[in-house]
């Protein structure tokens, strides 16, 4: 009788343990509010797991991927700044080399169909290839990167656990990083809580939202606050960066850049593809009366032959109040995303 009870107890323990495991697996996944569209990235053969995500997280914070093991992804994509750089216009890579564009913030990437300011990268999995191999960023040949990982017993072990018994190859590295990057969901700002009926906006914030919807939302489309299009927003041409035109070689695409999301915008200054504007005031002034005519200027920025978005000071203050509701402090302090 005793034996039977022990057996039953043992069995129940195993049962509950395996149930627990199933529960963990079920709990781990991409979660987002019901007003978000379906994600663009569907993972495909890259099965999302907790271990795969954690491996991607370790790699994101590890300078092992750079030539001299000094620069990690996180060097220029800091969680406290919604994964943009530490409020610098141009980031520094290995040997203190400077790039030519502002490090973009990183969140809601599973919804993003194209990457980089010029839209040149077409898939989240191959995105890290650019910073890893760029001579002024991490400057490392992919084969060397993979070799370094294979020579590292801890990574070797963890990759095997996630992807099976085989040497690490670039696809596994890209899969792990894609798992981490896709899971960076920012959807708990005051705006989100307002959308979910949990808080009220202040009068200024509410007015700001109305102004935003009337004057900004066609490009910075809710709820992701971008439509992922490439547009010329009338910036003065300061250098020979052709943006999207460099990718398509079509002159009508020259000086067009990807519309960035405005989520966490207050945390990610400076602004524009080259980080030329330090404050949101400068950005709003640019749109109201600082635009420079360009043959490719976006038609939405030209109304009745006048370029710019008419905004008075009162509207600018209210817009700013609204833009501040897009800061997601849960996201920037979420320990799930931290090293």
């Amino acid at each position: 009788m005793m034996k039977r009870i022990i057996f039953l107890l043992f069995f129940t323990m195993i049962w509950s343990y395996s149930c627990q495991n199933d529960q963990d697996e079920l709990d781990f996944g991409l979660t987002y509010p019901d007003y978000f569209p379906a994600p663009h990235y569907q993972f495909g053969k890259n099965t999302l797991t907790k271990e795969g995500f954690e491996l991607g997280r370790s790699l994101f914070f590890d300078p092992i991927l750079s030539l001299d093991s000094t620069i990690s992804c996180a060097s220029c994509h800091a969680q406290g700044h919604a994964f943009a750089d530490h409020n610098v216009a141009l980031s520094k890579g290995i040997y203190d080399l400077a790039g030519t564009r502002n490090s973009p913030s990183m969140f809601n990437l599973a919804w993003q169909p194209i990457f980089m300011w010029d839209g040149g990268i077409n898939h989240i999995e191959v995105m890290p290839l650019a910073p890893i191999t760029n001579p002024v960023e991490m400057g490392q040949d992919m084969n060397t990167a993979i070799q370094k990982l294979n020579n590292n017993p801890s990574y070797s072990n963890r990759f095997r656990k996630v992807f099976g018994e085989k040497p690490i190859e670039s696809q596994q590295l890209f899969y792990a990083l894609a798992q981490y990057m896709s899971m960076l969901v920012s959807a708990d700002s005051k705006y989100d809580k307002y959308r979910q009926g949990k808080v009220e906006l202040t009068l200024d914030e509410g007015d700001g939202l109305q102004i935003f919807r009337a004057k900004c939302a066609s490009c910075h489309k809710e709820p992701l606050f971008t439509d992922y299009s490439l547009r010329n927003n009338g910036l003065e041409i300061l250098n020979d960066d052709l943006g999207y035109g460099r990718i398509t070689l079509d002159t009508t695409d020259n000086h067009k850049f990807k519309v960035p999301s405005l989520r966490n915008v207050a945390l990610t200054y400076p602004y524009m593809h080259d980080g030329r504007f330090r404050t949101l005031d400068q950005v709003l002034d640019h749109y109201s009366n600082g635009l420079v005519y360009h043959t490719n200027i976006d038609p939405l920025l030209v109304q009745n032959n006048i370029i710019g978005i008419p905004l008075n000071n009162d509207e600018k203050q209210k817009l700013k109040a609204f833009l501040n509701t897009l800061s997601d402090y849960t996201f920037i302090s979420n320990p799930l995303y931290s090293e």
Binding site: M116, G120, N122, H123, V126, L129, A130, N134, M142, Q171
Partner: peptide
């Protein structure tokens, strides 16, 4: 097709 073969453009996918 492994990008480590050096035949995949990093900045302009393809």
């Amino acid at each position: 097709l492994d990008p480590a073969k050096g035949l995949f453009w990093s900045w302009n996918s393809g």
